[in-house]
Write a protein that binds this DNA or RNA. Structure first.
Length: 175
DNA sequence: TAGGCCATCTGGTCCT
DNA sequence: AGGACCAGATGGCCTA
């Protein structure tokens, strides 16, 4: 993969604050209020009627736009959360090129293979076999296992294996 | 310059 | 009704 420098994306959409600043009809001045103003001005003529329609339309558009901006913001936050989760996942997957950031698809693929190889190890150990890891798919299971051995002490590994083993057994009984 | 990856926007649908 | 989720579109950045 390639090394990614942190870049700040230029935001295409108008900033919400800026939008609120430049908008003449704010959220605090809804259609009701506009109608009230008209009544105060004694608005009975046709021109006033069309003005009302225009104002209502303008407010609807602006309200729509405001909702869109808020929705965009939520979506951005959601994607940031998702990316944080991806980053957390990257940090727990042992991989060879630690200096390079894994892409999302690489992260998911590697995680899947890592889980498979761990599961295989656990199953073999729990049935009294030596922990030789089978190579599954494209992932080199034994390399992962060696890496895992380097990263974790025996005690920690045993703890994790026991934990996984218990979880798998209970899962099997449940199914 | 093409292709890969990513962030963001957007409208539709689902869920609470 | 409003927020969460999703997928498609778009455009920017980076590398080979």
């Amino acid at each position: 993969m390639k090394t990614k420098s942190k870049r700040t994306k230029h935001r295409l959409a108008v900033d919400k604050e800026a939008f609120l600043r430049e908008t003449t009809v704010s959220k605090e001045e809804p259609v009701k209020r506009l109608r009230c103003k008209e009544r105060q001005n004694g608005g009975n003529s046709e021109s006033h009627k069309t003005d009302t329609v225009k104002a209502k339309h303008a407010w609807k558009n602006k309200d729509r736009h405001l909702r869109r901006l808020e929705s965009n913001e939520r979506e951005r936050q959601r994607m940031h959360k998702l990316n944080n989760a991806f980053q957390a996942l990257r940090e727990v997957i042992p991989h060879v090129r630690a200096e390079n950031k894994l892409s999302k698809i690489e992260t998911l693929t590697l995680a899947k293979n890592y889980i498979k190889s761990l599961t295989s190890t656990i199953l073999q150990m729990s049935s009294g076999h030596l922990p030789t890891v089978e190579v599954t798919g494209t992932a080199n299971g034994s390399k992962l296992y060696q890496h895992y051995q380097q990263q974790h002490g025996d005690d920690e590994r045993d703890k994790q294996l026991k934990k996984y083993s218990t979880q798998i057994h209970s899962y099997r009984q449940g199914s």
